[in-house]
Amino acid sequence: MDKYVLLIILNMPFVIFGFIKAFSMYGKGILRRGGLIARLFFWALISFCLIFAQQIYNFLSNNKLTNSPPLSLADVLLTTGVIFCLFLSMRAYSKIDNLENRVTDLHEKLSIELSNKNK
């Protein structure tokens, strides 16, 4: 199988999930329009780079902007790993931020309740 096709097959699930997640968050009201646009732009940029990876490489190589060898199987796996890590880090960052906010809210309410009780 062509390595560029393999690159698309391995990475597209993350991109599609990224798109679906952005729309579902917007639908639930978690994400504002600005956030939705930013996320869609981000995942669209990654899809563009994946789909046109060969053309981008040829352009860079023909214009002597890179002297790296063509895509290898190791490169495909490495790129997939990087995109997976990016996907995970976005999710983790988002979840940690939400948890931090909830813990802070809990602490605030608990502090007010206990201060009221101690009067």
Partner: peptide
């Protein structure tokens, strides 16, 4: 009115607690 934070949380958290209590 004294509100005691259970743990040290920072100036931002303390201000937020005060603002929310005042609003309440």
């Amino acid at each position: 009115i004294l509100i005691n934070h259970i743990i040290n949380s920072g100036a931002g958290a303390a201000t937020r607690t005060g603002l929310h209590f005042a609003k309440s």
